[in-house]
Design a protein around this nucleic acid. Structure first.
Lengths: 170, 170
DNA sequence: CTTGTCGCCCTTTTTCTTGCTCATCGACTC
DNA sequence: GAGTCGATGAGCAAGAAAAAGGGCGACAAG
């Protein structure tokens, strides 16, 4: 196989860039890794009858019942319409149910059904073993480093990340 | 199973420091970061008239014309059907064209059109600035570390990467 | 040596889901 | 009553799995 990447932007600097890795590889690499992760997760999650993307909803709800779609979306990092549809499908699948808030008619609260509750530990297992497979051969320290860098990248990419130090909470 | 460094189960709150980061966070964190990256890339790529996922096809073809859908899929880490449809759409968009191989009737070769060729550098710019935004505040060394770890994760998640050869140990 | 069949490879089609953006509708607040 | 916040609907695309279509080569039978 021919490994001809990186030769187009060979930096003539005195740095010892052994592999020619730089920021231009960031997007493809993250994307590719995430795709592999998603595929692996889909396989593992399929035994529970769910799809990748639904696991987070169950786990978040297992930690805190009665969240609203907006809160769930914010927590999982997806947009509200996406969460609405995923919730709708999962409701049809019988994993959770919507309940209208009594005090505020705008809000919809989401609760796990008995069926959904049963899948929690299985999902946890799926996510765990998927993470373990991904981290095979990595030291504990390397995993923490990876997570830390990933979170920094994530923050950097937040569009509403204006550094207004004033709290904008309600 | 040759490593014994950290195969204990993820027990919350057992270790020392800041946050209880462990392998169970790997899947959500990578997923979340990749989503943010994809969203940012979609915005940037939109000016060129493309969608996230199409950029890699153009760039791969710019490096090596006449690749088959299967080769492209393998290179970009997606499944063949996905690549077929993406190619079809991009062909309709006028960025590339399909040409039947003369010697082998099974093969389809993909070539950039003049229009597609014109977008190459713009795509490169989009990917670059997106990577730079993601890497904001990270040192060069940190970026390389992140890329290295990501590639390891990616390799670990390849399903067809069984231990047919024991030389690919850690 | 010729021929026919079978199996494999590559591509494409189909169906399902997530995810985003834009737009709408209802309900609460001022 | 106007503005705003939250949830939802419609439209577009990527990605995966399963399966179908076509072509090529190998292998066996005559």
């Amino acid at each position: 196989m021919s490994k001809k990447k990186g030769d187009k932007k060979a930096k003539p600097g005195k740095k010892k860039d052994h592999a020619g890795l730089s920021v231009v590889d960031l997007a493809p690499t993250i994307t590719h890794a995430a795709r592999s992760m998603r595929t692996a997760l889909t396989r593992s999650l399929g035994e529970s009858g769910l799809y990748a993307g639904q696991d987070g909803v169950i786990l978040a709800l297992a930690e805190e019942e009665g969240m609203t779609p907006g809160q769930l979306a914010l927590r999982l990092g997806v947009k509200a319409p996406t969460m609405t549809r995923t919730i709708g499908r999962m409701e049809a699948q019988g994993f959770l149910e919507r309940r209208a808030d009594e005090t505020d008619g705008r809000l919809t609260k989401v609760f796990l059904t008995h069926n959904g509750l049963k899948t929690v530990e299985q999902i946890g297992r799926s996510v765990s073993e998927c993470g373990e497979q991904a981290a095979r051969g990595l030291s504990d320290k390397e995993v923490r480093t990876l997570l830390k860098l990933l979170k920094l990248v994530e923050q950097n990419l937040q569009p509403a990340q204006e550094e207004d130090q004033d709290s904008l909470d309600d």
